[in-house]
Design a protein around this nucleic acid. Structure first.
Lengths: 223, 223
DNA sequence: GAGGACTATATTGTCGACAAATCTAGATTG
DNA sequence: CAATCTAGATTTGTCGACAATATAGTCCTC
């Protein structure tokens, strides 16, 4: 976990990170109510801290809040997931386009090296190219866009919600090798400094995984 | 102003809206420090309220905050504006695509009616197709996408920042008629239920206005 | 027995005060 | 004279208490 080194500086930060983890990993269930007093005793901080943390969770789209009523963990729905992936497609497609323009040669070389390692893993163990690797790949391209707005929107806006869906719906499944090939092609387009192609390929890649996840959901719910 | 009817329910809401207005319209200048005590006396609320409002402004990308130091109004730069429009292009392009799929026939008819009115204004007065009209047009397509994530990101994430740029850099200029034709074509694509074309046209439209604004900025700074 | 008004309770919203961190300015030392 | 250290002042972070609002349950009326 080289990236995403968020170090809590204030007590509110820490509570925010803890709560976010609890939500993403399903320790606190979707739809559950977030009681300020309850959480403040649980995490041993004042209500003001919890309150600020909840506000931040709302900014991340992880909770929904109603004035004078309270906050609830978002519920995960099939439609919600599709909508989320539509936004991902738009933003990460643009990220790939910009990465093809703005990534340094060194960054591209590093990204290719990373993919080589993943490729060996895929060949050897036939798998292990999961979450972490996938996240790392996408993360590098996002950062490679060099667009701070884009980076912030993906990181704070949808990244953790995507993770919440993946973790709680058990999406760490296969789709390994094909996804790897798609990654390969995206990097190739970036290395060729071909923004249009990079965007198209990234959008397809995300569309595919959306479809893949959708199928899984249908299979699950029809069992 | 039919849309955007944000009614403050809590005191914190009200302060947030007031502060946001002050920032967008430049009453509080870019780069200025936001002192919690100062603002709390000015708006006659407690520091906690101001604090919460500032947190929300941070979520809107209107202020930047450093722990234990404080919050500052964002500074407006040429690069920042370009980055912002890149995000807009991605998100509103997707919005147009989805609108072509999801808007009801009635909504499309209303949108066409709106454009007709604008068209008459353009012909008669040669102008008046400014801010409000443009905002209304884009807003309807965003909402027409029926994608809540997308809507929220555009409304809370970048809309007000775009407005801040426009107001403070005096961007309510011409580019009336061409922009109107572009709007016309976008609506036509939506009415034809042609998602791909709607997205392409919307992205071009935003690219054009980005270029237009960029030219203005260069002209300004070189004077 | 159903529906509505009222009361009691619990939860969120707001406030002022204290603690901790940062910044400022003056003093000290090399 | 420059750089560093220190003490004071200012600002943000945190807390517990009070006020206002929503919720749940009870009682009354029809």
């Amino acid at each position: 976990m080289s990236f995403f080194t968020e170090t809590p500086v204030t007590s509110s930060d820490k509570t925010f990170y803890l709560l976010r983890k609890a939500l993403v990993e399903g320790e606190i269930k979707p739809g559950a109510k977030l009681s300020e007093v309850e959480l403040s005793t649980k995490y041993e901080v004042s209500r003001a801290i919890v309150r600020e943390a909840i506000n931040r969770l709302e900014s991340c789209n992880l909770v929904e809040r109603k004035p004078n009523v309270g906050a609830r963990v978002v519920t995960l729905t099939h439609e919600g997931l599709i909508e989320l992936y539509q936004v991902r497609e738009a933003l990460e497609g643009m990220a790939a386009r910009l990465a093809a323009q703005n990534m340094s040669d060194q960054e591209i070389a590093d990204l290719q090296a990373l993919l080589n390692i993943h490729g060996e893993d895929v060949q050897k163990r036939g798998s292990y190219y999961q979450e972490a690797g996938d996240v790392d790949f996408h993360y590098r391209i996002i950062v490679g866009s060099k667009n701070d707005h884009l980076i912030s929107m993906l990181q704070n806006g949808i990244y953790h919600l995507v993770r919440m869906y993946r973790v709680q719906l058990g999406m760490e499944g296969p789709r390994v090798t094909t996804a790897f090939d798609e990654h390969l092609n995206i990097v190739r387009a970036i290395a060729n400094r071909d923004p249009e192609l990079a965007e198209i390929l990234m959008r397809r890649h995300i569309t595919y995984s959306k479809r893949n996840i959708g199928n899984k959901l249908n299979a699950q719910s029809s069992v």
